[in-house]
């Protein structure tokens, strides 16, 4: 069995369109618009994309947003900072979820 993720996949990502062109077009337009420069800069949006890609563990997106980051002069030093910010927030979220246990214990414990 071939690997599920292949670095050649992104080149034919667009083939998914044929299964539902209407929804594909809507998503495509939304994605394009959301990543246009607005109040947030192109740099900020690329770093958001990179952080989400890490969080969602999507190799395609990590590849794509690393390449985009390189193309605006960002380096692994920048991406490492973004990675640590992402990772620390994830750790914080994990701890924050411990509040659920804390609350249950507070309510049901003696």
């Amino acid at each position: 069995m071939a690997a599920y993720f292949d670095d050649e996949d992104l080149a034919h990502f667009g083939e998914l369109e044929k299964h539902h062109p209407e929804l594909w077009a809507l998503w495509s337009k939304y994605y394009g618009k959301a990543f246009e420069e607005g109040l947030l800069t192109k740099r900020e949006k690329i770093l958001i994309g990179f952080a989400v890609a890490l969080c969602e563990k999507c190799p395609y997106c990590i590849h794509s947003y690393t390449a985009q980051a390189q193309s605006i002069g960002l380096t692994m030093e920048h991406l490492a900072e973004a990675g640590h910010a992402t990772a620390s927030l994830r750790a914080g979220i994990t701890m924050a979820h411990a509040l659920v246990a804390h609350n249950i214990d507070k309510k049901t414990g003696m």
Partner: peptide, 20 residues
């Protein structure tokens, strides 16, 4: 004059200038 340190190209000279 900036040039990529690797096998990629720069996509936005204006943005790079602001960063520099």
């Amino acid at each position: 004059v900036a040039n990529p340190v690797g096998a990629f190209t720069i996509s936005d000279q204006g943005l790079m200038e602001a960063e520099f």
